[in-house]
Amino acid sequence: MLSKVAAMRDAYGDALLELGAENKDVVVIGADTTGSLKSGVFASKFPERFFNVGIAEQNLVSIAAGMALAGKIPYAGTYAIFVPGKSVDQIRNNIAYPNLNVKIVCSHGGISVGPDGASHQQVEDIAIMRAIPKMNVIVPADAVSTKAIAKAIAAIPGPFYVRLTRSSTPVIYDAGFRYEHGKANALKEGGDVGIVACGIMVSEALKAAEALRTKGVAASVLDLHTIKPIDSDAIVKLARSCGRVVTVEEHNVMGGMGSAVAEVLGERYPVPIRRVGVMDTFGESGEAADLLRKYGLTAANVEQAALGLRGQ
C-alpha cells in the first residue's frame, strides 16, 4: 500500500470500457480532452456511442442532459477547471434541477495539475458542486477506488460529479474495494485525533498518521470520498472517539470538504477542528510535489495541524 502508483485517468478509461460492454445505454461525451481523460479509449471500442463536441463545455453539459432525457447514461467530462468552471448554469439548470442521470467525471482537479499554473488549477469545484441541490459529489482517493466509483454510479440514478487528479498517485485500496454510496471509509483507528481526507490527500493523511504514531499519537483516518451526500454519522463517530478533527483536501478551505465536515460537527458534535487545504489563494506553475509542499498540502502539514490541536 502506498508504494505503488497508478493514474486515476487510466482507471477511468478502464471503467468506461467495462461499462460500455455491460450497458448499451452508456455514452461518453468529451470536449477535446478525451485523449487526456482516457475517455478516448471508449471511442475505439464503441465509436457510435462516443461524441466529441470540441472546446465547448456548456454544450457538452447540455447535450449530456438531452441524452439523459432520452434514456441514455452519459459520462461527460473534461478538465475540472472548465466543468464545472465554465458551465455552472448548465449543470444547475439542465442537469441538477430536473435531477437527470448525468455522470460528470472531470480530471485535473486541484493544484497538483502543476506547470500549467493557476488558470488550470481547480480549487473551487467541490464548493460549487456541493452547493447545487441534488448533485452528488465524489473525490476518489486513488486509481482503484476511481474505477469502482466510476462503475458504481452508473447504477445510481441522478447527477454525479466525480473529481479526478492529473498525476499518478499512490494506490491505497486493493481490488476488494467496494463503493457504498454516501459511506466514508475508515482506514485507520486511533483515539487521539481524527483525520478526514479526500482525493490524493488520503495518502498524505495515512503518512501523517504513521508519523504521529511514532510520536505516541494515535490517529484515525477517514476517507470521505463522497462529500455529498455526506456521511454525517461517520464524522460524528470520529469526533466522539477522538475529540478533535483535522480535515485535509486539495481545494480551497472555503466551501470544500473541510467546510462540509465543520458544518456537520458544528451542528451535531462540536469539537476543535483544523482545516488543511488551499488557504483561499490561487496556485502557480511548478511540479506537483513542489506545489503541494509550497501550499501546505503534505503529510507534514497534516501532522502539524494534529499536533497543534493537541497543544503540542
Binding site: A65, G66, M67, D89, Q90, P98
Partner: peptide, 23 residues
C-alpha cells in the same frame, strides 16, 4: 425539460436528436 436560462435549449435538442439516431 426545465427552461428559463437562455441559450441552452438547442443543446438539449442536440442531445435527444443524437439519442434518437443512436436508438
Amino acid at each position: 425539460a426545465p427552461a428559463g436560462s437562455e441559450g441552452i435549449g438547442l443543446s438539449l435538442a442536440v442531445g435527444t436528436s443524437l439519442a434518437a439516431k443512436l436508438d
